[in-house]
């Protein structure tokens, strides 16, 4: 039933209102704008994509609104394979906050995590951050860069496919942050832990 070969956790961060949820919903459901009340109870979204004939399951986590008052839990960053840092190209303050976000990422995420910088809302006419400025920032911080529009579905697919491909490649070269190998899954359903040197997740 679960016939995917790879499962990756992708986490979004960035200021409130930059369109994180819209990106996820556009990608996973082809919807825009997302219904307002609908995010209640939604923890992460799942979409299976195909890369080099392999099924890759992306588990995409949203902030649950905790970014609004700078109160994202550290545990949100743990065990992420890829991290998408989003700003709004029509809103300078969202770009100015990027260094703060990077600090938080460096503090809590694995240093091997794949990091992508995304300038969203390119459909807007009132651009404040030129593409080259975003590119430059990304290059300086060793991140992949892309500009998107969740509204016009521009580059959204490309963004997540790129992530899936890169993570696959990392996985093949064993360069992925390896979490599963050391933790226990406290699942109500399964409870197989062969070795005590192994840890679990109780999902």
């Amino acid at each position: 039933m679960e016939d995917f070969k790879f499962l990756f956790k992708v986490v979004l961060v960035g200021n409130a209102g930059v369109g994180k949820t819209c990106l996820v919903r556009r990608f996973t459901q082809g919807l825009f704008p997302p219904g307002q009340g609908a995010t209640i109870g939604v923890d992460f979204m799942i979409k299976t994509v195909e890369v080099e004939n392999e099924k890759v399951k992306l588990q995409i986590w949203d902030t649950a609104g905790q970014e609004r008052f700078r109160s994202i839990t550290q545990s949100y960053y743990r065990s992420a394979h890829a991290l998408i840092l989003v700003y709004d190209i029509s809103c300078q303050p969202t770009f100015d906050c990027l260094p703060d976000w990077l600090r938080e990422i460096e503090e809590y995420a694995s240093s091997k995590v794949l990091r992508i910088l995304v300038g969203n809302k390119i459909d807007r006419e009132d651009r404040e951050i030129p593409t080259v400025v975003g590119e430059d920032f990304a290059a300086r911080h060793n991140m992949y860069f892309l500009e998107t529009s969740a509204k016009e579905a521009e580059n959204v697919e490309k963004l997540f496919m790129k992530i899936a491909e890169d993570l696959m490649q990392q996985a093949r070269s064993k360069d992925l942050p390896r979490y599963d190998s050391i933790t226990t899954n406290i699942s109500g359903r399964t409870s197989s832990i062969s070795d005590s040197n192994c840890c679990s997740k109780l999902t």
Binding site: G41, D43, A64, Q66, F69, R70, Y76
Partner: peptide, 26 residues
Amino acid sequence: MYGSGEITQAFCRLSAVFGGIYALNQ
């Protein structure tokens, strides 16, 4: 993993997912 401090955060995350509003440093 990562310490017992993660536990309170797990409950806070659930609360946020169900609409709870979080503000530290208030």
